[in-house]
Simulated assay, not measured.
Amino acid sequence: MPLSIGVGSLSSRTGTDIDGNEVYAPVRRWFMLDAPVIFNFNRGAGATKIAEENIVRTMGYFAGGGLAYHLGPVNKVMDNVKNKNGPLYGPPKLRNAVGLVANAGFRMNTGKGYFLEFKISYMKSLTRYHTDVYSMGLLLAH
């Protein structure tokens, strides 16, 4: 269960609506949570707890899939606003999604029981808001 938590901010911007009135989109802070349950196939370095095997194999890889829950902000473009710097978004609202997730990556043995792991993953939402989630990570594991 590689749990991911994030926080962020959407900066404030102004634009002009169709009638020429100034529209202000205030600063908003948001929260994000990804909670997948993934079953991985592991091979090579770090795949087992046997020390001799991990010393001999310096590279390993993994791939798998499962089910994930995502909670995060969804922004909607303000259709009635014209802005020379691009679209103006309304305040984000927290929405949740459940979907299928797949991940793959590789790990390198750095010595002394530590592994450097690179992972990419993708979640395809099966719920109403169709929030597809892409992620990439670099992890130092023991």
Results as ranks from 00 to 15, higher is better:
residue 115 F to V: 15
residue 113 G to Y: 11
residue 98 V to N: 03
residue 60 G to I: 03
residue 8 G to M: 00
residue 87 P to D: 04
residue 4 S to P: 00
residue 52 E to A: 14
residue 80 N to W: 03
residue 108 M to P: 00
residue 55 I to L: 03
residue 85 N to Q: 15
residue 25 A to E: 01
residue 139 L to K: 09
residue 108 M to S: 05
residue 117 E to R: 14
residue 75 N to V: 02
residue 6 G to V: 06
residue 89 Y to R: 07
residue 102 A to H: 09
residue 83 N to T: 09
residue 105 G to D: 00
residue 9 S to H: 08
residue 20 G to R: 05
residue 126 L to P: 08
residue 46 G to N: 09
residue 63 A to S: 12
residue 118 F to C: 05
residue 35 A to L: 13
residue 6 G to Y: 03
residue 18 I to R: 09
residue 89 Y to I: 03
residue 111 G to I: 01
residue 118 F to K: 12
residue 102 A to C: 10
residue 92 P to I: 00
residue 25 A to F: 04
residue 74 V to N: 12
residue 82 K to T: 14
residue 91 P to G: 09
residue 119 K to F: 02
residue 12 S to L: 00
residue 23 V to F: 05
residue 20 G to K: 06
residue 24 Y to N: 11
residue 73 P to S: 10
residue 16 T to N: 07
residue 120 I to C: 05
residue 44 G to I: 04
residue 50 I to A: 12
residue 92 P to M: 02
residue 79 D to T: 07
residue 82 K to L: 11
residue 135 S to W: 03
residue 81 V to T: 08
residue 74 V to G: 10
residue 58 T to L: 07
residue 115 F to E: 12
residue 16 T to V: 15
residue 12 S to K: 00
residue 96 N to I: 06
residue 62 F to W: 01
residue 25 A to N: 11
residue 139 L to S: 14
residue 98 V to H: 03
residue 98 V to F: 13
residue 34 D to C: 00
residue 40 N to V: 00
residue 94 L to S: 13
residue 35 A to D: 12
residue 98 V to W: 13
residue 40 N to L: 01
residue 60 G to E: 03
residue 67 L to A: 07
residue 62 F to E: 01
residue 63 A to R: 15
residue 76 K to M: 06
residue 73 P to G: 11
residue 137 G to Q: 13
residue 126 L to F: 12
residue 101 V to L: 01
residue 101 V to P: 01
residue 12 S to G: 10
residue 69 Y to L: 11
residue 7 V to A: 01
residue 107 R to A: 06
residue 33 L to G: 03
residue 87 P to C: 03
residue 85 N to W: 09
residue 49 K to T: 09
residue 43 R to G: 01
residue 123 M to E: 04
residue 33 L to P: 07
residue 55 I to G: 01
residue 137 G to E: 11
residue 22 E to D: 13
residue 117 E to I: 04
residue 112 K to A: 14
residue 111 G to T: 08
residue 44 G to N: 02
residue 31 F to D: 13
residue 6 G to F: 04
residue 30 W to Q: 02
residue 36 P to W: 15
residue 70 H to G: 06
residue 37 V to P: 00
residue 35 A to N: 08
residue 47 A to K: 14
residue 72 G to S: 02
residue 101 V to D: 07
residue 63 A to K: 09
residue 114 Y to I: 11
residue 129 Y to N: 14
residue 63 A to Y: 14
residue 112 K to D: 15
residue 48 T to A: 08
residue 86 G to M: 06
residue 96 N to T: 05
residue 6 G to C: 05
residue 35 A to K: 05
residue 72 G to A: 00
residue 84 K to L: 08
residue 136 M to L: 13
residue 10 L to S: 12
residue 46 G to I: 07
residue 66 G to M: 11
residue 98 V to T: 15
